[in-house]
């Protein structure tokens, strides 16, 4: 009985706080994405050759975890199969946040572009019964800073 109560409390807490945190996070992501829209991130390996650039490695990482409720839903999904939406939004948030952090770093250097952007994902801590608890996403790329802008690193 006590176990059931603890479980229910955790579920409600996870659901309420988790939903709120996710909404807040998405809001902040969308807002910052708007701010940094001027700085293009490009996946190409070949930099523009018309101008000279200084290069600097930039990166951003995020470790993010799902809440109790979503983990339970995901475990149910494992029985039925199909889309696991609770993990989809988790990874989406982690990727966008990492990219934003990378862009912020590049922006602070006065970069014009970020080239060769790559993502890397790792699940760093496996929870009980090997369920995915949290993921780390790293985004990295090369910031191209126009030479002579006084921001050389």
């Amino acid at each position: 009985m006590t176990n059931l109560i603890i479980f229910l409390v955790l579920m409600t807490l996870g659901y309420l706080v988790g939903q709120m945190a996710e909404k807040k996070h998405y809001k902040s992501i969308i807002q910052r994405e708007k701010q940094l829209r001027e700085l293009p991130t490009i996946a190409s390996r070949f930099p523009p050759t018309d101008k000279l650039f200084d290069q600097h490695l930039v990166m951003g990482n995020t470790v993010i975890s799902v809440d109790y409720f979503k983990r339970f839903i995901a475990a149910l999904r494992n029985l039925l199969g199909g889309r696991v939406t609770s993990y989809e939004s988790l990874l989406d948030r982690a990727r966008r946040e990492s990219l934003l952090r990378m862009k912020q770093q590049a922006d602070a250097m006065g970069a014009e572009y970020v080239f060769n952007v790559k993502y890397e994902t790792a699940s760093i801590s496996k929870g009980r019964k090997n369920a995915i608890g949290s993921v780390e996403v790293l985004a990295y790329g090369t910031a191209l800073i126009a030479s002579g802008s006084g921001n050389e690193v």
Binding site: L13, V17, T62, I64, S65, V66, D67, Y68, S134
Partner: peptide, 9 residues
């Protein structure tokens, strides 16, 4: 704790 509430670690 964060594993219950979710969010960034």
């Amino acid at each position: 704790l964060k594993n219950i509430f979710g969010g960034e670690l």
